[in-house]
Design a protein around this nucleic acid. Structure first.
Length: 263
DNA sequence: ATGCCAGGTAACACCTGA
């Protein structure tokens, strides 16, 4: 048997990979994640800044579309068995879900769950239906007993402790009871929230709005998660939020959430 | 109650985001 090695996995909603390229390259160099799950790349696959990120030492798999959404996986290992799109609705053309196998053993998914605002519109019903599809898909995948991590921007504030002021957000799609119930239902399939398993304290955030000085006032919310299969949870060694990228010039409004697992 | 800020597209304004 090979000696176990520690793999660092991060999820990062970059809010346009082209606008964020200098920040992303600096972060890859400083933080040196082994695997990165990107969301909101906001570009078609052909315009992804592939060369620059390959030069930083990463293999790349993308699932993009024009202007909106888009996810990608970066890995220092080859990325195998890539699957694009969330099953369950052949008419859904939004690029919000992809999977790949990294380091020959770890199945990862990059998730950009629909925002759903404003409530009471078809955007909110799309969000809820998408969450049902995600749950069904994860449930099916869990039967394979793999070391799996479903990471990304879940666009849900699961509890009042995950936002600076729940009253300010009470009509937001991210904290409606239906959104919360469906997020819990996904976790109840048997997934472990990597960050919470090491840091149970409230008011730990991964997103701060660009507006109204939210970053300076720490008016944030925790909406980016790494949800681990039992086999991945067994191997969890550490987890955290890397707040440094949010404080830089030309920052994304999200910052990376990461974990380390031994495989 | 509304806009605040940022990115993309396309065009000198509007859509989306959370």
């Amino acid at each position: 048997m090979n000696a176990p090695r520690s793999i660092r996995i991060a999820t990062f909603n970059v809010n346009s990979v082209r606008a964020r390229l200098p920040n992303v390259l600096a972060w890859l160099k400083e933080f040196s994640p082994d695997v990165v799950l990107l969301q909101e790349i906001k570009t078609v696959d052909d315009s992804f800044p592939r060369m620059e990120i390959e030069d930083a030492g990463y293999n790349i798999a993308t699932y993009g579309q024009k202007a909106y959404n888009g996810v990608a996986i970066l890995s220092k290992s080859p990325i195998e068995d890539i699957a694009r799109g969330l099953p369950g609705d052949p008419t859904d053309e939004q690029a919000r879900y992809m999977e790949g196998t990294v380091f020959g053993a770890l199945r990862v998914a990059s998730i950009y769950l629909p925002n759903g605002n404003p409530i009471g519109t078809e955007k909110f019903s799309y969000k809820l239906a998408w969450m049902d599809r995600l749950k069904a898909h994860i449930s099916a995948r869990l039967k394979d007993d793999e070391i799996s991590i479903w990471g990304g921007d879940y666009n849900v504030i699961p509890t009042d402790g995950d936002v600076w002021d729940p009253r300010a957000m009470k009509d937001d799609a991210l904290m409606q009871p239906e959104s919360r119930a469906k997020f819990r239902a996904i976790q109840h399939l048997g997934l472990t929230d990597a960050l919470r398993s090491f840091h149970p304290q409230p008011h730990l955030y991964s997103y701060w709005d660009y507006q109204a000085g939210a970053w300076q006032k720490d008016h944030g919310m925790l909406i980016d998660y790494l949800l681990c299969s039992p086999q991945a949870a067994d191997r969890l060694k550490a987890a955290g939020v890397d707040k440094a990228p949010r404080g830089k010039e030309k920052a994304s409004d999200h910052t990376p959430v990461w974990c380390e697992i031994e495989v």
